[in-house]
Simulated scan of single mutants.
Amino acid sequence: MKETYYVGAYWLSRRESAETCAQRAESFFRLLASCDPSLAHWFRKGRTLEEALKHRLEPDAASLAKVFHQQAQKEGRFADDGFSLRGWNGQTHEAASTLSLLCGDASVWVSNSCLFNPPEEGPAEERVLQTSVLAQILRAMAMAFEPEWGIATSSQHRNLVAPESARAGTFVGWLMYFSHRRGPLPPLPPPVHIEAVENKGTLVILTPERFTASNPAHVELARDVAERLAQAGLLTPLRPWET
């Protein structure tokens, strides 16, 4: 069975205004557009292809803030509920990518998140599912949303190492992001590569080639890294954001 991949960033209990969430989303869309040509334009989802293509997402902060305010009024949201957004890149079939966002939620039970699902077939998949491109996407999430933790990996490997009930921040995958607030990283074995994300955190990249759950060497490397990170206290559940 072919493996499917995703990129996600997570943070807990950080209440933010519609304007702040819109500014963060604008920054993310700007950075995402530079990762691949297929990620330059986004649309709100609709019931049909024709309907969806009529609702282009304008990625500037003012337009996004308007969307969030309209959402809050329509759904009767409280100030602590945060703001959500779902998008699709307007491509059909093999080039389609989707994303979803929850920002500004103050709950200690539901994490804020930014999730990206890359293309699953064709040339767009081959371009996006490169270590360097996924690192750019995860870095964009880290820069824009300042999450506590992030990951890019296959859904199959996630299901192998993390039960469905596990909280985000408790398993190892192909690429990971750790905020500095989680603590320093321990020494990690080759071929693991580490990159700083300005003064915010660190990217950890397990392999330069595509990581798969069907490769025993990849699974064993992930297990070794997981043991080291767990001993360093980096695989604990997310913590409420401290203001």
Rank of each mutant, 00 (worst) to 15 (best):
T153W: 10
N112V: 00
Q156W: 00
R24A: 08
P187A: 13
W174S: 13
A96M: 11
E195N: 14
T202I: 07
V172K: 11
E94I: 01
I194S: 08
K2M: 01
D60K: 07
L115I: 13
R139P: 04
L12G: 01
A226V: 03
W88R: 00
P208D: 15
T243P: 12
G233P: 04
T212Y: 08
W174N: 12
D224P: 01
E75F: 07
W42P: 05
E148G: 07
L39P: 02
S214P: 10
R158S: 03
Q91A: 11
L203W: 05
A65C: 00
W149Q: 01
T131P: 07
A62N: 04
L129T: 00
I137S: 09
I205F: 03
Q23G: 12
A162S: 07
I205L: 14
E51G: 13
T20N: 04
V225F: 11
W241K: 06
L221K: 12
L175A: 11
N199I: 09
E3N: 05
F211I: 12
L102D: 02
S100K: 15
R44W: 15
E195R: 12
H41V: 15
S132E: 10
W149S: 02
Q136M: 04
R239S: 08
L102C: 01
A152Q: 08
H193Y: 04
V161G: 05
F171I: 03
L160Y: 07
G82C: 07
L49C: 06
A222G: 08
P186N: 11
A95Q: 06
T98I: 13
R139I: 04
A79F: 14
E164L: 10
R210Y: 01
S155C: 11
F43K: 08
S154R: 12
Q136D: 03
A222H: 01
F211W: 04
E126T: 11
S34G: 05
W11T: 10
A135T: 06
R167S: 14
T92E: 09
E209Q: 14
V204C: 04
H180E: 14
W149H: 04
W88P: 10
N112L: 05
A33V: 06
S100E: 14
P118I: 03
L134T: 05
R167W: 14
L206V: 11
P119E: 00
A230C: 06
K74R: 11
L188W: 06
A168I: 02
H193I: 13
L221D: 11
L115F: 15
E75T: 02
G46L: 00
P187H: 06
Y177S: 09
A217D: 05
P237I: 13
R30N: 12
N159G: 00
G87V: 15
G104S: 02
R56K: 05
E125V: 10
A65S: 13
A65Q: 11
G76Y: 07
A96G: 07
E3H: 02
V204G: 01
L53W: 12
C35N: 00
M176K: 07
Y10D: 03
T170L: 14
S165M: 09
I137M: 12
H157E: 02
G150S: 08
T153K: 15
F43H: 07
H157I: 03
S34M: 03
R15E: 01
R77Y: 13
G90D: 08
T4E: 05
C114Q: 13
A65D: 07
L31K: 15
L238V: 03
F28N: 06
A62K: 08
T243N: 11
A72C: 10
W11D: 08
L31F: 12
